[in-house]
Design a protein around this nucleic acid. Structure first.
Lengths: 258, 258
DNA sequence: TATCATTTGTTCGTATGTATC
DNA sequence: CGATACATACGAACAAATGAT
């Protein structure tokens, strides 16, 4: 009778064991500071859990994976699994603009830029849709920016459509400049700028998990338009949703009368 | 020699097999409409994949789990795994306000409210922090709202601090009213309203996965303030990041001179 | 510096449950 | 009912990171 030993005695139709175990652990974690597993504490090792709850190692691992998916725990090879510190210190990133004389300043400037690569190419996907005038050549600057005050890191991607770069030579020369500079160049070229931004999120890809220290990624796309509603510039920002939140001021608008 | 047969002949230090396989499949999916696995198509079954790539079932399952985490595929027991339809039709939810006479209208009203429950309690966590004046009694209205045009569903939670409800009796009577009504009540009570909003995201909890059809949850908190910066109202909105994105207009502000 | 125990990560094998057609 | 597909669960072994000896 090869491989016949596990009893599988759980009542059928019931919640899977790994999820039961995940719920038990999640409830304990939810007790917080006074409970068995306060924030920052180490969970029992897989071996201890499988002995205590009489399940296989695989089942324990599935349960712990659930906890990670729920954002309740983080694991580190060679060390153990730890209860995540609460997200109280998610830093608010102000996505606003402040008019200072003729200049527009970012509400929350990142202080440090780590790498910059500039590439020519075609806009695809979301950015192409935001530019919204067919398949179009673009200049794209990519960098990793860091807010040294809070430690928040973000991947920034600035895309300039080629037709705009043609009209504003200063832009074509340094598409990797600071956004404030780009706004100034566009304004100097005679454009009246308006801005809007979209936010979405998704789970982090493996490379982003490492580079941005994130499980969930917040993505913003800021579109700079001229008065006719033509997209002059698209900035993409990707950052960890665990360490940052985005903050917007909402200004009621008065519709134009028709 | 029980259980000794797998050769484990992969080059050491390399990317794990399940991730290699995930990448291979993800790249094929990325080819899109012209590729091997266009959107909506069925992926090969686990059995076929393990034969084709000479790995174990567990490894295939881990690879497919990665695809699901990346939002590229969805699995259904008994049927198969399918390439997810592209997120082109993530619907933009306009988080703006339009002034129409004395009234403020939402830029993107949800058309239908499914359930409403009103509870008294204490604000905790994020909402308490946004109200920002100590542990405070609150009135909270919860509902599931649906945009019938797009099918987007969202969980909405409106919290009124008790001290505000005391000052504005109309608010205390129907805290479950439409936000536009709440704004009108506060304005009628003599407040000059201003608004700001924060956005964050996290992976969906099991109940949200079912109720909101989401893997990743976008969360907004809109704070309505009076002229002194006191929080009058906090609205929380939770929705699927796969089916919706949030759209903000950014209005440059002129700082008060000191 | 090197070794070793501990802990999580990867991979194989196998059996069975449950949903779909 | 049976075939197929994914989901759950058990067991075993080795890899890789970590910290202490």
């Amino acid at each position: 009778m090869p491989g016949r030993s596990h009893s599988t005695a759980q009542p059928l139709h019931s919640e899977p064991r790994y999820r039961q175990l995940a719920r038990i652990l999640a409830d304990s974690i939810a007790e917080g500071e006074e409970g068995e597993y306060p924030p920052g504490s180490q969970l029992p090792s897989e071996t201890e859990l499988l002995e205590r709850y009489q399940v296989s190692r695989n089942t324990v691992r599935q349960a712990v994976a659930e906890l990670r998916r729920m954002g309740l725990a983080v694991s580190q090879q060679g060390k153990g699994t730890y209860v995540r510190q609460e997200p109280e210190h998610t830093h608010a990133i102000k996505r606003t603009l402040i008019r200072r004389g003729k200049r527009l300043e970012l509400g929350h400037p990142f202080t440090k830029a780590e790498t910059v690569t500039v590439t020519r190419g075609h806009a695809r996907g979301t950015i192409a849709r935001l530019i919204g005038r067919g398949p179009i050549h673009t200049l794209t600057a990519e960098r990793l920016i860091i807010d040294e005050d809070t430690g928040v890191r973000a991947a920034a991607l600035t895309t300039v459509p080629f037709d705009i770069a043609d009209e504003v030579p200063a832009l074509a020369e340094c598409p990797d400049a600071h956004p404030e500079e780009l706004y100034a160049m566009l304004a100097d070229a005679g454009h009246t700028l308006s801005f809007w931004e979209t936010v979405t999120a998704r789970s982090a890809r493996p490379d982003e998990q490492a580079a941005l220290a994130a499980d969930t990624i917040l993505i913003t796309h800021r579109v700079t338009e001229d008065q006719e509603g033509r997209a002059l510039l698209v900035e993409e920002l990707r950052m960890s949703a665990e360490s940052a939140s985005l903050s917007y001021r909402i200004t009621p608008t008065t519709p134009k009368r028709g």
